[in-house]
């Protein structure tokens, strides 16, 4: 995969195939649906315990967390066909791709490194694609911002 993300004009240029864009949109949709739905396959990983010494976590905190995950996923879904992302939109992609890769892996039963050997490689393909996208996106987001020209006498 050639670099699909590149820092540009205060945001990030996006160059992805239609298939990958569909994958991202579908993952974002699944995350949005999974937040707050206990029967969804993603539910457990999307809502882990917060304070280990409490019998149950503060519902308000759980709501805020779900809202943050859902908002990022909705922004990602809405911009899945974009060729350029504003900085905030790129951050939403970063958040959603990371949540998607870990959530998907958890549903495949991957909780420790040893579990990776037991999972069907084909099932892991989607997780690997998401990881690769994330790696490129981190590079693009960490790129130093473009400096304006500093010509004299203009």
């Amino acid at each position: 995969m050639s670099a699909p993300f590149e820092a540009a004009r205060g945001g990030v240029n996006v160059e992805l195939s239609d298939d990958v864009r569909v994958l991202i949109a579908e993952m974002a949709q699944s995350i949005s649906t999974g937040v707050g739905d206990d029967s969804h396959p993603f539910a457990a990983r999307l809502a882990p315990p917060i304070t280990v010494t409490k019998d149950s976590d503060d519902p308000f905190l759980v709501l805020i967390r779900g809202d943050a995950i859902c908002t990022a996923a909705q922004i990602t879904h809405a911009t899945s066909n974009a060729t350029w992302l504003e900085a905030d939109e790129a951050e939403a992609w970063f958040q959603t791709l990371q949540v998607a890769s870990t959530t998907l892996a958890a549903t495949l039963g991957v909780h420790r490194a040893e579990d990776l050997e037991r999972v069907d490689p084909d099932s892991l393909t989607m997780v690997r694609i998401l990881q690769e996208l994330l790696s490129y996106l981190v590079d693009a987001l960490d790129d130093p911002p473009e400096l304006p020209p500093t010509g004299l006498g203009t």
């Binding site: 917060i50 304070t51 280990v52 905190l61 943050a68 995950i69 990022a72 958040q95 990371q98 890769s101």
Partner: peptide, 21 residues
């Protein structure tokens, strides 16, 4: 505690495994 929990849910919202103890 309350600040720790706020941080923890932000980490969760970025897909990291985190707890408060």
């Amino acid at each position: 505690l309350s600040k720790a929990e706020q941080y923890c849910i932000k980490l969760h919202a970025h897909g990291l495994l985190a707890t408060v103890e």
